Amino acid sequence: MPWSPRAVLLRDLVLGILGTLAFLIDLGADLWAASQYVLSGRYLWAALVLALLGLASVALQLFSWIWLRSDVSSPLAPKPPGRHLALLHLLQLGYLYRCVQGLQQGLLVWRQEVPSEFDVAYADFLSLDISMLRLFETFLETTPQLTLVLAIILQSGSAEYYQWVSICTSFVGISWALLDYHRALRTCLPAKPLLGVGASVIYFLWNLLLLWPRVLVVALFSALFPRYVALHFLGLWLVFLFWVWLQGTDFMPGPHSEWLYRATVATILYFSWFNVAEGHTRGRATIHLVFLLNDSLLLVVAWATQSAWLPSGRLLQSLLPAAGVCFLLGLALRLAYYCWLHPSRRWEPDQVDGTWGLRSLEERQLPQNRRMAHLAKNFFPKPRDEAVLPWKGEVNGVL
């Protein structure tokens, strides 16, 4: 049964509140873990936690500020960013400001009996940017933090209570970001099949089940060879950066800022799949999966042939087989999702998600969030009947 307009608005507002709380809780857990490392005299671990937090925060502020500057010409941008916004980004509060702004706009729309065209469009515009920034934060900070905590546990052979809190909050943050990003992409399409609970659960599970084994083997390599993990990351990161460059991405407003995006995508690809270009998605995803699988197997072989024995050796004997089962299950769910549940860019005006569905066809002519709309075209395939009829592409200016 389709959601009512008021229910859709309330759902999006609640999701926005939960997403902001998840970010704050995860940030608090990381700062708490860093303080505990300092109190216990483990200064290097504390420095690594804070370094990951700092690098990810700087990247998020850069993305946010560049987008604010480039959106000045958009009808959805109320006014150019002022000095107070520049100061907030300099103080590393730009992303949090966007979250608060999105919640305020969502509350404004929800309180209107008949939401105005501009307010609804602006709420969508803000929520899409927040979802993208949340995804970047997940792979620039949360996932590396999770890898670091697991490496510390594997190296020490024991886990403290604050480390378990960090692990739990990291998994919640990663799961939330992946599902929220998928939901955000769907709102960029003028119409699409409804995102049911079953499809949401399967999409969430296959991402998490494939990500967990990768995080574990990287953490294992970090625990065994802490001096070489940076070289391993840098080597693969350069390969992925070159691959992203070959695909000719066009996400950011300028050529220099585009390299920031490519560097971020290369970091995501180190852990998980992320599509950046249209066409032959299945082939690229398969190449990436095989490449990451081979690299993970090599990392496991390095552990198996290592003469030194970690204190958590017995724990690894159960974790690694469990990781293999998770990988196979995640792969099966991924195939099932893309075979039967992944929607196409078909025009079905009666089946829409999000606040986009509250508007008429004429109102949908408002400018969209160009960045996320571009990614949605890469993420969702064209219907087969459109793909085989060249005249449709010619009419739409594709060919």
Rank of each mutant, 00 (worst) to 15 (best):
M1N: 06
W3Q: 07
P5A: 05
V8I: 15
R11W: 10
D12R: 02
L15P: 01
D26P: 00
L31M: 09
W32M: 11
A34Q: 05
Q36R: 14
S40F: 07
L44S: 03
L50E: 01
L50N: 04
A51I: 02
V58Y: 11
W65M: 14
L68W: 04
D71V: 04
D71C: 05
S73I: 03
P78I: 04
P80V: 02
P80M: 02
R83F: 06
L88A: 15
H89D: 06
L90V: 06
L93C: 01
Y95I: 01
L96G: 03
C99E: 08
C99K: 13
V100D: 03
Q101W: 09
Q104G: 14
Q104W: 12
L107Q: 08
W110C: 11
Q112T: 01
F118Y: 15
V120T: 09
A123M: 00
L126I: 00
S127I: 02
I130Q: 06
S131E: 04
L133M: 08
R134E: 07
F136T: 06
E137L: 03
T142E: 07
T143W: 12
P144Y: 08
Q145P: 05
Q155H: 15
S156N: 12
A159D: 03
Y162K: 02
V165G: 00
I167H: 04
L189W: 10
V197G: 01
A199M: 10
V201A: 11
V201K: 00
Y203N: 15
L209K: 00
L210K: 13
P213A: 10
A219R: 03
S222E: 12
A223L: 09
F225Y: 15
F225C: 07
R227V: 03
Y228F: 13
L231G: 09
V239C: 13
F240H: 15
L241G: 04
V244M: 12
V244C: 14
Q247C: 00
Q247Y: 03
D250V: 11
D250Q: 13
P253G: 07
G254N: 13
G254K: 06
E258N: 11
L260Y: 05
T264H: 01
T264D: 01
A266S: 12
L269Y: 08
S272C: 07
T281A: 10
R282F: 05
R284F: 05
L292A: 14
N294K: 12
V300P: 06
A302W: 12
A302Q: 03
A304S: 12
T305H: 09
A308G: 08
W309E: 14
S312W: 13
L315D: 05
A323I: 10
G324N: 04
L335S: 07
Y337K: 00
L341P: 04
P343I: 02
R345Y: 08
W347A: 10
E348G: 07
P349V: 10
D353G: 01
G357N: 05
S360Q: 03
P367S: 01
H374L: 04
L375D: 00
P383L: 02
E386K: 13
E386P: 02
V388A: 11
K392T: 05
E394R: 14
